[in-house]
Amino acid sequence: MTVDALGEVATELYGLRPDEFTAARNARAQAVAADDRALAARIRELRRPSPAAWLVNQLMRHRNDEVEAILELGAEAREAQGRFDAAELAELGRQRRRLVSALAHEAGDLADELGAAVRTPVLDEVAQTLQAAMSDAAAADAVRTGRLVRALEAVGVEVDLSDAVAGGPAPRTEPGDTARAGETPARPSAAASKRRRAERAGAERAVADAEERAAAASAALEALDARLADAERGHRELGTRRDELEAELREVEAELAEADRATRSVARERDRAARAVDAAEVDAEEAREALDALEQPE
């Protein structure tokens, strides 16, 4: 078994969605077991990445230029610290916060695109990992592998990388890439400066794009707020109208109850009158019969 072989397998596996990882890892281990049992065993040991680590790995695959831009900015910030250039350090710090925030936001969109949406705490861990990679060259190399197993965190100037990268350690930073403690870093070459300017321009475009998306989202939010206010106003108006109708209904029902009582009273009077008519008709009939009897000859 070679580290390169394990690294190649790990690179492929850590490009998958977290829900695909375990089945694919086991299938790959089974496929190589007949030819290389040691490699199969190491593949089975590969751990499923945390959501934040998975998302940082995907940023390396799908947003490589943006990630490299902030890692280069981190290297410049470390050099500025070595020179104790306070003004440059402050400006780099501002750029660093803007870029990390923009890229963490873009990571959320990327997760949606890849069919594995994440929540805000995961994006916070992504930003934390990017900050750690900017503060430490070895952490930057770990991010560049695209095989992170867990999120990274800078404690002071230290970043714990134990068991952070799958498939073998991250390649070491080439000598001279980052200033060592107590050493004065060499000034970057013209080609390196040109490359960094190009990368910074790309990073600034990423910030501008992120700010444009934020402005569009803010405008959409304002429009939705206006629609919500209209809906709430309409709801209040309908509620008021409902209350008015309910009050009117109560009045009509009271009037209807009074009409029912009046109808029953009239009906009772009518019944009494009908009975009086019947009695009077009987009396009249009896009177006619008596009169007829008197008129008969004796």
Rank of each mutant, 00 (worst) to 15 (best):
D4C: 03
D4N: 07
D4S: 10
L6Q: 04
G7V: 08
A10G: 09
L13H: 11
Y14I: 07
G15Y: 08
R17V: 04
E20W: 05
F21C: 13
T22D: 15
A24P: 04
R25P: 12
N26E: 15
A27P: 01
A29G: 04
A34C: 04
A34L: 14
L39M: 04
E45N: 11
E45T: 03
R47P: 00
R47T: 14
P49E: 06
P49Q: 10
P51I: 06
A53K: 10
A53P: 01
W54I: 10
L55N: 03
L55Y: 03
N57W: 02
N57L: 04
Q58S: 09
L59E: 02
R61Q: 10
R61L: 04
N64R: 06
N64S: 05
V67D: 03
E68Y: 03
A69C: 07
L71G: 03
A77I: 01
E79T: 11
G82P: 00
A86F: 04
A86E: 09
A87D: 13
E88P: 01
L89H: 11
R94I: 07
R94Q: 13
V100K: 09
L103A: 10
H105L: 11
H105G: 12
H105W: 01
H105E: 12
A107S: 13
G108K: 13
A111I: 08
A111V: 06
D112P: 00
L114S: 04
G115L: 09
V118W: 05
V122L: 01
A132Q: 09
A132T: 07
S135K: 06
A139R: 12
L148P: 03
V157T: 13
L161G: 05
G167E: 06
G167C: 09
G168H: 09
P171Y: 10
R172G: 11
E174M: 08
P185F: 06
A186I: 06
S189Y: 09
S193W: 11
K194N: 10
K194V: 08
R195A: 15
R196E: 05
R196L: 07
A201E: 15
A201F: 09
G202T: 08
G202A: 14
A203H: 06
R205T: 07
E212V: 00
R213A: 08
R213N: 02
A215S: 11
A217P: 04
S218H: 13
A219R: 14
L221H: 05
A223E: 15
D225T: 12
A226D: 14
L228R: 14
A231H: 14
R233W: 08
H235A: 14
R236M: 13
R236A: 15
R236C: 00
R236D: 15
E237M: 08
L238F: 05
G239F: 02
R241V: 10
R241I: 08
D243S: 13
E248F: 07
E251I: 00
V252G: 02
V252D: 03
A254Q: 06
A257T: 07
A257E: 15
E258N: 13
A259P: 00
D260W: 01
R261A: 14
A262H: 13
T263K: 02
T263I: 06
R264F: 02
A267D: 15
R268I: 05
R268H: 11
R275V: 10
A276D: 14
A280F: 00
A287Y: 02
E289I: 03
A293M: 02
E295V: 02
